[in-house]
Structures are given as structure tokens and as C-alpha cells.
Nucleic acid binder design. Structure first.
Length: 315
DNA sequence: CGCATTTGACCTGCGC
DNA sequence: GCGCAGGTCAAATGCG
């Protein structure tokens, strides 16, 4: 009984995470398009490889991991800057992916009416997505990128200075969502930080906008970790790790804003002075069995390119 | 004292 | 029009 409920919760997490218009498909695409030396690894062929490489299964919900490994993908997960295209394969496919993941596991019994209701809800969501929505013209069309990070601290240090300007309770989630704004004047970058309602150890950080300034030197003496020390075999350029911009921004510049699956900055920056985030660093190093990456506990973050809601660009 | 956080109020978009 | 939910504002408060 408990097992079933647990499974439901996991599936619910999958649905809620990847059916949202900001997540669906994009997350999968991000996983598929992993930057490496000389470009990106072919997304379709390397899905499982990437995930194993990054040790996702070690920190991802099992059902989510299965979901991501399941080759039930949009036929052409082409990344586009057009929100319409990005959103198109999102909703319906996410449903099939989600359910197939359930079938893949030995948990078909969990396909109860509750799950059907979930699917109905998702279908309703999909319907809503298909409707042309009026959006506030003031709402920026800035790119949004979301990181899923397993951490016990909510606000991860990414090198920039943030000022919290709000906190809101999120529906269907016991955890509030915090709103941060870059403290640099004239820089309108925002980020939202919330904890997954189904796995409280997962922090979802959504960046919105692009910094108009270099990363400030923090008094904590942050440094960047070289890929070699992460167990990388040089597949990711060193500059990506020392660049004073968050990885999503680097990648925007280097790869024409394609989303990618990558270890985001929060886990890459550490305090050498052991002053502010010793526990964070400690927590990030989760001993594990199989991979070097996991040994370092660094590659525990999933970047999910999150598109601004379908904004009425043409109008 | 300056800066960051907290938190209730307010605004806006959307569905019914 | 009303209610709900997400997002933002700004005064009060806390902290170094």
C-alpha cells in the first residue's frame, strides 16, 4: 500500500514537472542535447548514456529516471527559439512518456483511476496550452532556464548576488517559492527557487533573463572547479567552467541558446574560505558507488531550459 | 548604517 | 464579475 502511494507520488512528480508548458519536452531535449567538445552529443542516441554518465539515477526519482530513459520521445526534439515549436511536442507526448514509464516499471498496478485522473488533468492542460492565450506584453520574452538540483539548501550560490523580493506559497506544494532578483542595477535577471513537492531534496531554480554584467567577485572567494577534477575527460571546455557567467548563459552564447544537460554553476562553485557554505559543499559531495562524477557529487543538477510561457510575440 | 530578508498587500491574468 | 493563483511591491524587521 505504501509502495503504491509512493509510486503515485513519484509519477505525480513526473507529470507535474514535465507536463508543464515550461518543462515538457524541453527537459527531455536538454537531456538529449549535451554539450561536449566540438558540439553536442547526438541527442537521440545518447540519452541513456548521458544519464548514466551524469549519474542521474542516483538523485533522480526512479520513475523520472525511467521516464527520461524511455525512448518515447517527440519525433524531432528540435530545439527552437520559437516557443510555439518548443511547446508543440510538449504536452501530449509528455503524457505518453509518463505512462510508458509506469509501464516500464513493474508498477502497472499503480495505473489506477488516480492516474487516469492525472492524465485527464494533463490533457486539460494540453488543451489549455493549445489555446492562444493573451499574455501581458510587459512580460519579458527573456529566456528561462531551470535547474533541478539535489540540495538541502534552497538558495544555491551561483556567483551572482541576489536579493530576495518575494515568497509565495505554491499550490499543491508544501514548499514556498522564493523570488530573487539580481542586485546589480540595470540587470533585471530574476530567479525563482522552489523545492519539488514530491522530492524535497530537489531544488528547482529557474533563471529568467540574461545578466548584463560579469559575475561579481564574491567575498567568499569562490572558485570554479576544473572539469578534470570533476572526472571529466575533457569533453567540456574548460572555459565553460571558469567563465564568470552561469552555464546556461554560456551555452546560450556558445550554442545558440540551445538547451543542454549540464552541471549548473551552483554545484561548481565552492567556497575556498570555508566561510559561508561549508555544509552546502559537504552536502554536494555524496559518496556513491559507480561513477567518478557521482563520487564528487557534483553532477547532480539538471538544467532544463524553460521557455517563457507562450508569449504573443507577433502581437 | 547599509543591505538583505520577511511578509502582507496589491496587481495581473485566467477560468468559470 | 468573481475567485484563484502567480508574481511583485514595499514597509517593517533583522543582521553584520
Amino acid at each position: 500500500m505504501e509502495k503504491i502511494e509512493e509510486t503515485k507520488a513519484e509519477n505525480s512528480m513526473v507529470n507535474s514537472t514535465f507536463s508543464d508548458q515550461n518543462w515538457t519536452g524541453l527537459g527531455l531535449q536538454g537531456i538529449l542535447d549535451m554539450p561536449c567538445e566540438g558540439g553536442t552529443i547526438n541527442q537521440k542516441a545518447s540519452l541513456g548514456f548521458n544519464m548514466d554518465m551524469f549519474g542521474i539515477q542516483d538523485y533522480c526519482d526512479p520513475s523520472l529516471f525511467d521516464l527520461l530513459r524511455t525512448p518515447v520521445m517527440p519525433p524531432h526534439p528540435v530545439v527552437s527559439e520559437s516557443p510555439e515549436i518548443i511547446n508543440t511536442p510538449a504536452t501530449p507526448n509528455s503524457l505518453s512518456v509518463s505512462s510508458s514509464s509506469t509501464e516500464a516499471n513493474d508498477e502497472q498496478q499503480t495505473k489506477t483511476t488516480a492516474e487516469e485522473q492525472e492524465q485527464e488533468q494533463e490533457q486539460e492542460k494540453a488543451k489549455k496550452l493549445l489555446k492562444p492565450k493573451k499574455k501581458n506584453p510587459k512580460r519579458a520574452t527573456e529566456p528561462r532556464f531551470a535547474f533541478m538540483t539535489r540540495s538541502e539548501v534552497d538558495h544555491l550560490d551561483d556567483g551572482y548576488r541576489w536579493r530576495k523580493y518575494g515568497q509565495k506559497a505554491v499550490k499543491n506544494s508544501p514548499f514556498p517559492r522564493s523570488y530573487y532578483r539580481c542586485t546589480t542595477p540595470s540587470c533585471g535577471v530574476k530567479k525563482r527557487v522552489e523545492r519539488s513537492s514530491d522530492d524535497r531534496s530537489i531544488v528547482v531554480t529557474t533563471y529568467e533573463g540574461t545578466h548584463t554584467h560579469p559575475c561579481p567577485v564574491t567575498p567568499r572567494g569562490n572558485i570554479a572547479i576544473m572539469p578534470e577534477s570533476l572526472g571529466f575527460s575533457g569533453n567540456i571546455s574548460t572555459s565553460s567552467f571558469v567563465h564568470p557567467q552561469p552555464p546556461y548563459q554560456q551555452f546560450q552564447q556558445q550554442h545558440h541558446q540551445q538547451p543542454y544537460f549540464h552541471n549548473p554553476t551552483p554545484s561548481l562553485r565552492f567556497s575556498t574560505t570555508n566561510s559561508s557554505f561549508p555544509t552546502f559543499q559537504e552536502r554536494q559531495f555524496r559518496p556513491s558507488s559507480s561513477s567518478l562524477l557521482r563520487d564528487n557529487g557534483l553532477l547532480q543538477d539538471m538544467i532544463v531550459p524553460s521557455q517563457e510561457r507562450k508569449e504573443p510575440k507577433e502581437e
